[in-house]
Design a protein around this nucleic acid. Sequence first.
DNA 1: GACAAAGTGAACAGATCGGTCCATTTACTA
DNA 2: TAGTAAATGGACCGATCTGTTCACTTTGTC
Lengths: 187, 187
Amino acid sequence: MRPTKRDELVEKALAAFYRNGFHATGMDMLASETSISKTSMYKHFRTKEELILAVLRLRDENFRNWLYRRIEELAATPQEQLIALFDALEDWFKEPGFRGCMFIKASSEYQDAGHPIHRQSADHKRMLETYVIGLAQKAGYRDPAALARQLLLLKEGAIVTAHLGHTERPALDAKQAAIALLESSEK
Amino acid sequence: MRPTKRDELVEKALAAFYRNGFHATGMDMLASETSISKTSMYKHFRTKEELILAVLRLRDENFRNWLYRRIEELAATPQEQLIALFDALEDWFKEPGFRGCMFIKASSEYQDAGHPIHRQSADHKRMLETYVIGLAQKAGYRDPAALARQLLLLKEGAIVTAHLGHTERPALDAKQAAIALLESSEK
DNA sequence: GACAAAGTGAACAGATCGGTCCATTTACTA
DNA sequence: TAGTAAATGGACCGATCTGTTCACTTTGTC
């Protein structure tokens, strides 16, 4: 089954929005860049906002799938996987087109906490939190939720620091901090 | 000496950009919101970009002054001040108009690492780093730079998490992680 | 009270914004 | 092969974008 035109649009729009930002990427630019007519775009999505929401759904799926698999490749036990998270980050930061976290950027452009785009970005972060809490639970920590939240602060910090580009290897700094946190956390 | 019209413009533009974003805030909206004519605005700044750069300079000055003073209010020794950083964050997050870090948002909208706005945002982060390294040095840590980078990852993470709003008290999580990091860092 | 500097409002430019419309062409399927 | 659904290009809408121009008014100073 070939990917539908709709999927193709969302995929290419994802690349354009990620590289160029949301407000800065117009629907005409999108049409020419994706080689999909504006008429078609507006047949699939009633507004630009709906398209962005679809893009963010795809991004969430892609990113979490990639991350979870990469972490499993890198480490076998939950304990080690909590650390491997930061090795995976380093891989991501090194990718040529890296431009930060799409959800942080989305919430930067759609700031109102009640805005659908902002809310969907928060949902993504919540799902990541659930995943890391699960790892911390399996690893046997006494307060897995608190530990997960702390590790995720390091993750978010590393991402924005990598994008800002004022520090050499934020993923490595985060990893070392994570190791220290794990060692000082009670089981 | 009264503040000049230029200062007044930059100050009000700061509030508008912070609340509303950069691309989403047009020069006409800015003119009506600041009660300063467009003609005047363009007499002080040749382009919107130049105005944004002036706004970011003011924001950097305001924010660092506020933060440094708040930290000194909250704690007396460098050791305690490294922790008080996160109490200051909590104060900030609780402010009614809190909408995240202006520099993270600026770099989210002007993503290219070579763009003046992106570069200036990175400069702000570097200056904060210098300050925290100084505290870590005075507190007598063996590797003050590494420790400062780790603490700042927690800070950036807490800011974006507070803005996303998917977690209850990110500043408190960050503070507890910071305490653990400090305890496990060699002097 | 004259003069220059600074600020004003409003119209204007050309480009782009999100979104609509329509006649035509392509592609799948009965 | 006929019919239908999907996709196309391009014109078009009103609004908004950054930035300019101009004639007029305010303001502070000598």
